[in-house]
Design a protein around this nucleic acid. Structure first.
Length: 487
RNA sequence: GUCCCCAUCGUCCAGAGGCCCAGGACGUGGCCCUUUCAAGGCCAAAACACGGGUUCGAAUCCCGUUGGGGACGCCA
C-alpha cells in the first residue's frame, strides 16, 4: 500500500481530554479509517512537571468512551515504540546533535536572565522581541572560554532567510517570512528537547503522513517544516482545524462549564451523539445530512470538508442530537445504559437485569429524555413505594371541588376494570368523569398527581396501566386520604 | 506591537461566477395533535460585515477597512 496514511493524535497530558482535543482526535481517526490507514496515539509528556499518569489515564478513558480506537500507542505498542515522548529523549538529542553537525543549529550560551530582560524591555515598548543571534557567530576563543567554564548551553535552530510555505488542506497555501521566525531553542540547556524538535523527530520516526491538529499550531508549522527539511525528511501534509469556542466566542475553558468529554459522559450524553455532534462542528459532508452514523461519517470524511472559521460549541444542539440518538437506540441497549444509573440511586436492585416491565417504563420515558440522567429523575416516582406530591402539582391540580369524592368513585370503577390495560383504563376514567359530571381533564390531572406526584408525565393511561391495578388503586386511595387531611 | 488565520440567519453548516430576492439543522415564535410535559407534523421570523474593484453577471474572484481568533517561551 504505497499511499498508506498514517496520522496521529498527540495530546499532552497536562489536563483532561477536552472537546477540542476530542474533535481533533476524531478527525484523525476518521481520516485513518477512511483511508485504511493507521491512527497512532502518542503521549507528549515532555513536560514532566505538568504531566501525570492520572491525566494520561483520563485522556485514554475519554478516547475509549468516544470509541476512538488507536492502532499504535499506549497499551498496545506498535512498530515505532515507545509512544511516550518522554521515553524518546535520546532520539531527540541525537537529532539535535545532527542538526548542529549539519550546520542547521548552533549552541547558545545566553542566560535565561538576559533573554527575559530583553523581552521585558521590548514588551515595555509594545514590541515583540526576537532572539538576536548573539551566539550565532561567537569567536572561537569566546566559545572555548564558555566551554571551559562549563557554561550551560542550549541548542538553537538556525532559521534560514526567505519564505517558508506549506500546503494546508483546510487553509490552502500558507507562507511565512523567515525574518519573522526567531532562532528557536530545540534543546534546553538541561538536555531536554523542546516541543518543536520532539514532534518533528517523532513524526519522522513514526512515518506520519498527515498532521491534523488545532489551528493554534499554524504559526508553529513553519518551524516544523524547516525542521523536517533540515532533518532530510519528507514534509507531511497539514490540516489545521479551527478552534472550538464557548458561547461568548472565547476559547473554551473551565469557566464555560463542561469542557471535558468525560463530564458529558457523566451528564448522560451518548458517545455516538457526541461524536456526531463534534464532527459537524467545523466539518460538513457537503450536503445537508446531520444525523450520521460512524460508518457514514467515515465514508464521507474529507479534510477539504473542514471549514476555516472557528466554531461555537452549541450545547442546545448537542442536547437535541442526544435526544435523537436516545429515541433511535434499540431498547435493550438503552436499558443496559439506564440500569446502572437507576441502581446507583437505589431505584433498581444492583445487578438485577432489566425485565419486560422496566423496558416498558424506559419506553414510556424515552420520548421525553434528552440525556440518560433524565431517565433517573423521571423514573423515580414509578420505582418508589410512596409518591411525594410536588407543591406545584398540589396547587395546580388538586384544588377541585369534590375531587376527593370523584377519585373515590374512580377507585371503585378501576377495581372492576378488566383487562387493566391502557384502553380499558381510559374508558373507565372518561366514563367516570362523565358520570360525575366533571371534565375528564380534572380526573386525569388528579390521577397524574396521585400516580407520579408531578404535573408532567407520560400519558396517564399508559402510566396507570404500567402501575397495574393494585398500585394504581393504592396510589389513588393515598390521594383520597391526602385530600381528606387537607380539609 | 509583529506575524498568521477567519468572516453567510442568534448558533452549526450548504453554497466552489449565473441553479440564490441564498438552502438545511439547532434554537426562537405560531398552529396542529393532545389529559400534562415531551416527541412528532406544518408554518414563520431570521444572514451573504463594510467599501472599492474584476465581470454581461458576484455570497462566490482581487484589494482595502472593520471585526473576531490564534501565535510570538530554555511550555506543549
Amino acid at each position: 500500500m504505497a499511499s498508506s496514511v498514517r496520522v496521529r493524535f498527540a495530546p499532552s497530558p497536562t489536563g483532561y481530554l477536552h472537546v477540542g482535543g476530542a474533535r481533533t482526535a476524531f478527525f484523525n481517526w476518521l481520516y485513518a479509517r477512511r483511508h485504511g490507514g493507521a491512527f497512532v496515539l502518542r503521549i507528549e509528556d515532555t513536560d514532566a512537571e505538568r504531566s501525570s499518569d492520572d491525566m494520561i489515564a483520563g485522556i485514554l478513558d475519554g478516547l475509549r468512551w468516544l470509541g476512538l480506537d488507536w492502532d499504535e500507542g499506549p497499551g498496545i505498542g506498535g512498530p515505532h515504540e515507545p509512544y511516550f515522548q518522554s521515553q524518546r529523549f535520546d532520539r531527540h538529542r541525537a537529532a539535535a546533535a545532527a542538526l548542529v553537525a549539519g550546520g542547521h543549529a548552533y549552541y547558545c550560551y545566553c542566560s535565561a536572565d538576559r533573554l527575559r530582560q530583553e523581552r521585558e524591555r521590548a514588551d515595555a515598548r509594545g514590541e515583540a522581541w526576537q532572539y538576536d543571534r548573539a551566539c550565532l557567530s561567537l569567536p572561537s576563543q569566546r566559545i572555548a572560554e564558555l566551554e571551559a567554564s562549563r557554561a550551560p548551553r542550549a541548542i538553537r535552530f538556525k532559521v534560514p532567510p526567505g519564505q517558508t510555505a506549506f500546503a494546508d488542506a483546510v487553509h490552502g497555501r500558507i507562507e511565512f517570512d523567515g525574518a519573522h521566525i526567531e532562532d528557536f531553542v530545540i534543546l534546553r540547556s538541561d538536555g531536554h528537547p523542546i516541543y518543536h524538535l520532539s514532534v518533528v523527530v517523532d513524526d519522522v520516526d513514526m512515518r506520519i503522513t498527515h498532521v491534523i491538529r488545532g489551528d493554534d499550531h499554524i504559526s508553529n508549522t513553519p518551524k516544523h517544516v524547516l525542521l523536517f527539511q533540515a532533518l532530510g525528511a519528507p514534509v507531511p501534509r497539514f490540516a489545521h482545524v479551527p478552534l472550538i469556542l464557548g458561547a461568548d466566542k472565547k476559547r473554551l475553558s473551565k469557566r464555560h462549564g463542561a469542557t471535558s468529554v468525560m463530564e458529558y459522559a457523566r451528564q448522560g450524553y451518548l458517545p455516538d451523539a457526541m461524536v456526531n455532534f463534534l464532527a459537524l462542528l467545523g466539518w460538513s459532508p457537503g450536503d445537508d445530512r446531520e444525523l450520521m452514523s460512524r460508518r457514514e461519517l467515515v465514508d464521507s470524511f474529507t479534510l477539504e470538508g473542514i471549514s476555516g472559521g472557528n466554531a461555537v460549541f452549541d450545547t442546545a444542539k448537542l442536547e437535541w442530537m442526544n435526544g435523537q440518538y436516545i429515541a433511535r437506540m434499540p431498547i435493550e441497549e438503552l436499558a443496559a445504559l439506564v440500569l446502572p444509573l437507576l441502581a446507583r440511586e437505589g431505584l433498581w436492585p444492583e445487578h438485577a437485569p432489566a425485565d419486560e416491565r422496566l423496558r416498558r417504563l424506559i419506553e414510556l420515558l424515552r420520548p421525553r429524555a434528552k440525556r440518560l440522567s433524565d431517565f433517573v429523575d423521571q423514573a423515580r416516582p414509578f420505582l418508589v413505594d410512596t409518591v411525594e406530591y410536588e407543591p406545584e402539582a398540589i396547587k395546580k391540580h388538586l384544588d377541585v371541588p369534590g375531587l376527593s369524592e370523584h377519585v373515590a368513585v374512580l377507585v371503585r370503577a378501576l377495581r372492576e376494570t378488566s383487562p387493566f390495560d391502557e384502553q380499558q383504563v381510559e374508558t373507565t376514567v372518561r366514563r367516570t368523569a362523565e358520570q360525575q359530571g366533571i371534565k375528564a381533564a380534572s380526573l386525569i390531572h388528579a390521577a397524574r398527581v396521585a400516580a407520579t406526584g408531578r404535573t408532567a408525565s407520560p400519558g396517564i393511561f399508559e402510566v396507570l396501566a404500567w402501575l397495574g391495578r393494585d398500585r394504581t388503586v393504592r396510589r389513588l386511595e393515598q390521594l383520597v386520604s391526602f385530600l381528606a387531611s387537607q380539609d
